[in-house]
Amino acid sequence: MNFAEPWWLLAAAAFALGVGLLLRFFLRREAAEALLYSDLAFMRGAIGSARVPWRILGAALVAGAFALGASLARPHVALRLPAKDGYAMLCVDTSGSMASQDVSPSRSAASKAAARAFAKAVPAGTRVGIIAFSTNAELVQPLTADAQAVSDAIERIPDPNGATAIGDALALAAQQLPNRGRRVVVLITDGENNRGVDPLEVAKFLGAHHVPVYTIGIGTNDSGTLIPGTSEEAGLDEDALRSIADSSGGAYAKAADAVALRDALGRLGRTTVMELRPVDASLATACAGGVLVLGAVLAALGAGRFP
């Protein structure tokens, strides 16, 4: 929490101290004038009144007074809010290995479902683009804030076929993303790059420009499932994906099934395009202080009257 005019805090502290001292004076005077009775527990039980937490009420009053004073210092709190200029580029692998069915119904279908979950989870106003890549990288949907356009674009993602050019996809993403704003690249792939530029180099470049690459490794390594139409076993190059994420400041997550993939993308959608923004909390602080003071006063007035 920061204060735009912190010297008001001193005034607030002095005000709260004054309220506290005044309260103490009245309570002490009242205690000095207290009537002596032999058994207060019996009296409380007979009258049927609950014990009033006077110390807590007093503390609430002092805290409320301080909060009211502190609101003049114009406090600002850093809140994690959806970025006003958030950009997310979703790179979906459509290489032949994505036709493998070690993830039900197939890696490709699961990644489309996950892409939908991501598009649904991102805060409104975030611009989302989609790149499909196999032997080449293709821009399926340029960055847009139109959720419907993104949804339609996901349907246009081609069926799995060809090699895997992760580096090319990342490079295309780098071209599409603007120079400023909260920018992220989400890469859904099985990670076995075999075409185009070195993805690690592009990831380093993106990292240097504050664009983290979140990689989602889809599939399993030891399932023994073959890539349809080939005698090649479907695999997952986790080390490569972890390196890409690490070198760009992103994170790697593995999704061995469709549900895990959808959850991971949904989580990324909610968190990656958020940013810490300072928010003026003067009104909220004043309201909280007012509620505390009013609550303490009302509780003190009503204490004992009601069981």
């Binding site: 009242e30 058994d39 207060l40 527990a41 009033v52 204490a303 004992g304």
Partner: peptide, 16 residues
């Protein structure tokens, strides 16, 4: 409202 003091414990309490 009357503040009462317990003669045994010395604790004060306010009653309505």
């Amino acid at each position: 409202f009357v503040t009462m003091r317990d003669a045994e414990t010395g604790r004060t309490e306010r009653f309505f």
